[in-house]
Simulated scan of single mutants.
Amino acid sequence: MTATLDTPIAPALGLHTDLTNEDYHSDKTSLSSSGARKLLPPSCPAKFRYEQDHPQPASKTFDYGNAAHKLVLGNGPDLEVVPGARWDTSKAKGHLAEIRERGGIPLKEHEMQMVKDMAAAIRRHPLGAALLDPAYGAPEQSGFWIDEASGIRCRVRFDWLPSHQGGRLIIPDYKTTTDASNRAMEKDIEKYGYNQQADWYENGARALGLGDQNAELLLIAQEKKPPYLVNVIGITLGSRVIAGAKNRHAIETFAECASTGHWPGYADDEPNYLELPGYAEARDKELYLS
C-alpha cells in the first residue's frame, strides 16, 4: 500500500513505548485482539469491516472506563469536570464538543469523584496495587508483529507492562465492570472473549520477545460502584487453548478477506438452517410431542 496524505504510515514492527492511542488504532493493515473477536460469530467480517471504517462515537460507558484507566494507569485522555447539573443547554453542548474535539473526556463532579475513588481502591488492593506499581512498570505500550503462519500484521496495546521483562512475564489488564464476582466474570469471559484476549496478548508478548515463553495475562476487574471491589482473575489453560483455536480461525479469516476484498455477512450464498434453542426444544417436545 502506498502512503498518501490520507493513509497513515503503519508503525514499525516491534514494541513502541510512546505511540499514541490514535496512531495505534489508525493502523488498518493489522489485526488486533478486539478485531479478531469481531470477525467471529456471533459477529461477522462485514461488521468488523464496517466498524473499522466507521469508528464508534463516545458513550458514557466508554467514558467511565477510559477515565478510570487514566487515573489508575496514569495514561490516557485528559479529564475535565464540567460544572452544572444540566448538559442539554446550547452552552453546555458547545463546551462538551470542545472537550471531545481536543480528545478529552467531560465528567460531572460526582463522576470525577467516582473514578478517583476507584483509583484509590486499586491502590489499597494488595495484588492489584503490586501489579500496577508505577515504580516497576509503564502503561499503554503497543506492539506489532508478523504472524508467521499467515503473513499478516498483528498488533496489541498492553494496558501495562512491567519494567523488568526477563523470566516469566505477567501482563495486567484493567477492566471496569458492574459485577466483578467470580460468577459474573466467568460470564464476561465468554461474552467479551477475554480468554481470546489472554491468548492474543500472551502470543504477542512472545512474538515481541518479552519475557520467556510463559507469559500470562491477568485481568484486574473493578466494580464501578462503592466499595469499588477488585478481583484479579487468571484464565484457565483449557479456556486459553480454545481461545487459541478461535484466534487462529480469526487470523485466517482476516487474511482471506483482506486478500479477496470480500467481507461476508451472516449468509451470502445460501440460507442458514437454525434449530430451536435447546431449552425451548426440550420444553416443546414435552408439551406437544409426548
Rank of each mutant, 00 (worst) to 15 (best):
L96E: 10
I235T: 14
F254W: 15
L73F: 10
A36Y: 06
N182S: 10
P8N: 12
R102H: 04
P83S: 13
H110F: 08
A97H: 04
L217D: 10
V81K: 05
Q197V: 09
K60L: 08
F144D: 04
D179E: 07
E190Q: 12
L96T: 07
E252F: 15
E223I: 03
K38C: 13
A215K: 09
H164I: 10
A243V: 11
G167H: 02
K70W: 09
E275P: 02
I122K: 04
E223F: 01
A85V: 00
D159V: 02
D133N: 10
V81S: 01
G204M: 12
H69A: 11
T176V: 13
Q222H: 14
R102T: 02
Q52L: 14
A205R: 05
L107I: 06
L13W: 14
P45C: 03
E202C: 11
G193A: 10
P277D: 14
L79S: 03
D78K: 04
T7M: 10
A97L: 02
P226Y: 10
I189N: 04
Q197M: 15
L218Q: 15
F48K: 04
I171D: 03
A129I: 01
A3K: 14
R102N: 04
P264H: 09
P42M: 08
I233E: 10
R86H: 05
A68Y: 00
G278R: 08
R206I: 11
H95N: 06
K28T: 12
G265R: 14
E109I: 03
L287I: 05
Q56E: 14
D6N: 15
R183M: 03
S33P: 05
A267E: 15
N272A: 10
Q52N: 09
D159G: 07
E275M: 14
E223R: 09
L19W: 06
E223Y: 03
R248W: 05
H69N: 14
G84Y: 01
S90Q: 11
A282L: 15
T89L: 00
A258C: 12
G166S: 12
A97T: 02
A255F: 11
D284N: 11
K116I: 03
E270G: 09
G238K: 12
L107A: 00
P134T: 02
N195M: 12
N75S: 13
P42F: 11
T89M: 00
A245C: 07
P106M: 01
T89P: 00
Y288M: 08
A97V: 00
E109L: 04
D23E: 15
A119P: 01
A250K: 07
G94N: 05
K93A: 02
N66R: 11
Y174Q: 13
A92Y: 00
D27V: 09
K116C: 01
E148R: 06
G74L: 09
A184Y: 10
W145P: 01
I146S: 00
L40N: 10
V156K: 01
Y273N: 09
K60N: 07
E109R: 13
I152C: 09
D23L: 08
T29G: 13
E270W: 15
A68E: 04
K60P: 05
E80T: 14
R100A: 01
G94I: 07
S290E: 06
P57V: 13
L208R: 12
W87C: 01
D284Q: 11
